Amino acid sequence: MTIPELRQYKGGKKLVVVTAYDALFARIIEQAGIDVLLVGDSLGVVVQGQANTLGVSMDEMFYHTRLVAEAAQRALVIGDMPFMSYQASREDAIRNAGRLVQAGAHAVKLEGGSTIIDQVDAITQIGIPVVGHLGMTPQSVHRYGGYRVQGKAEEDAEVLVNDAKVLEAAGAVAVVLEAIPAMLAKRITEQVSMPTIGIGAGPHCDGQVLVLYDLLGLFDEFVPKFVKPYAHLKADALQALRRYKEEVEQSKFPSDSESYH
């Protein structure tokens, strides 16, 4: 998968994106034929156990991006730029986007619209593809007062439509639309020529993304309305661990077949 191939998903075959944080899952996701691996700063919540994504560092994103990129053989790899890795200046944005590319990312993702256009322009000018992120942007969780649907009011919807157009004009190759009304996502999708990738944005986007641990049913501490678990691996893991504990305590494991002679 390349950036030109990514662009071809506009208005045609749906683009399938899943988050990945390590080599093992990156390989499994690729074996399933997934198009794009997003190394998301969501790792702050589902991997590190933090309340939000704000504490994720650039060094941590570099590390996880390198793990995924080295394992990926076919999928496009997008690296999330964490909080305060790009907001302060064009120079920060260029330097940190470059680090993710050095780690193996093919593109970087930034949250925000018109307020970060200078940074998007700076990154694209040096040849690094940028994916935008609009709607419910987790790095702005305190401003929203929690994880809330955005763009319900018409004036807010207009801002998001304009932000999508501005991002495209600045060179963004795609945009993630998170937690916005389905008809607003349809409106944005129809008004930009870059692919839109929905997460809680309804069925009209050019593609969809879900957090890996959510779709596998591993993370159930907070399950948004837009998440559909396609497995229940937490329950399976608990059952396996309890059986292991029981067999060790009852001297059933290891048995003769698990012992060397």
Rank of each mutant, 00 (worst) to 15 (best):
Q191K: 11
M136A: 14
A179T: 08
M183A: 12
G200L: 11
R143D: 06
E155S: 15
P181E: 05
R143S: 12
V159A: 13
K186P: 01
I188P: 05
K152D: 07
E158Y: 13
I180F: 10
G202R: 01
G151L: 12
V141R: 03
I199A: 14
A172L: 04
M183R: 05
G171N: 02
Y144G: 06
T189P: 13
D156T: 11
I180W: 02
G151F: 09
H142F: 13
V166W: 06
K165N: 07
K152I: 03
R148Y: 08
I199P: 06
I180Q: 07
A179Y: 06
V175Q: 00
S140T: 14
E190C: 10
G200S: 11
E158K: 15
G171E: 09
V161N: 06
A174K: 05
A164R: 01
K165T: 00
I188G: 08
E190P: 05
T196Q: 01
E158W: 14
A174N: 02
V161H: 08
A182G: 11
L134G: 12
A170D: 01
R143Y: 11
G171S: 11
A172D: 10
I199S: 12
I188R: 04
L167W: 01
E168V: 01
V159L: 15
G151Y: 12
E168N: 01
H142V: 09
A153D: 14
T196G: 04
Q191E: 15
Y144E: 01
L177R: 06
G146T: 03
V161L: 15
Q150H: 14
S140P: 10
M183G: 00
P138D: 01
P195D: 10
E155M: 11
E190D: 15
G146M: 15
A185E: 08
E158R: 15
P181Y: 12
L167Q: 00
Q150F: 05
R143W: 11
A164E: 02
Q139L: 13
A185V: 07
A170F: 12
L134E: 04
V161P: 10
K186R: 07
H142Q: 13
Q150E: 11
I197Q: 10
S193V: 00
V175W: 04
D156W: 03
A170R: 05
H133M: 11
Y144T: 12
I197F: 06
D156P: 14
G145I: 12
G202H: 01
V173C: 06
Y144P: 05
P195N: 07
T189D: 10
A172F: 07
T137G: 08
V159W: 05
V176W: 00
Y147C: 10
R148N: 14
G135H: 10
A185D: 02
V173F: 02
R148T: 08
P138A: 10
